[in-house]
């Protein structure tokens, strides 16, 4: 990397890597977003799509912060997701979003009379 490209480092977008797991009741989506601040992370659902974005700040040596990069990723959701009960947690640079399944899609135990 030349000095020129280092200077251009500001304001570029990264698609964070994702892990998705499924349980009987929910989907768990984890995204690697190191350097983001909790208050800068945006997660919202619109038109059956989950949008995740965050700006990161890099502390420079003199205490002045500048925007280093932006994380962005979106996921189209299947119709079994209950959009009203989404939970998100940011820990150790990893954002974890839990998407619960709708009641009618949950496995049901049928009692035999």
């Amino acid at each position: 990397m030349t000095k020129e490209t280092l200077e251009k480092k500001q304001n570029y977008t990264i698609v964070p890597a994702v892990n998705i797991t499924e349980t009987a009741k929910s989907y768990i989506v984890s995204l690697d977003m190191p350097g983001a601040l909790k208050e800068n992370i945006k997660a919202n659902i619109e038109n059956n799509t989950l949008f995740i974005s965050a700006d990161t700040v890099e502390n420079s040596l003199h205490g002045v912060s500048d925007v280093a990069k932006q994380y962005r990723r979106e996921f189209s959701l299947a119709n079994d997701i209950e959009a009203n009960t989404v939970e998100a947690r940011y820990e150790l640079g990893v954002l974890t979003v839990t998407l619960n399944k709708k009641e009618q899609f949950l496995p049901k135990q049928i009692t035999i009379k």
Partner: peptide, 16 residues
């Protein structure tokens, strides 16, 4: 690597 709990299963794994 996180351990999967109970009936949890992978759908996608991009993280090394």
């Amino acid at each position: 690597e996180p351990e999967l709990k109970g009936e949890e299963q992978w759908i996608r794994n991009e993280i090394t």
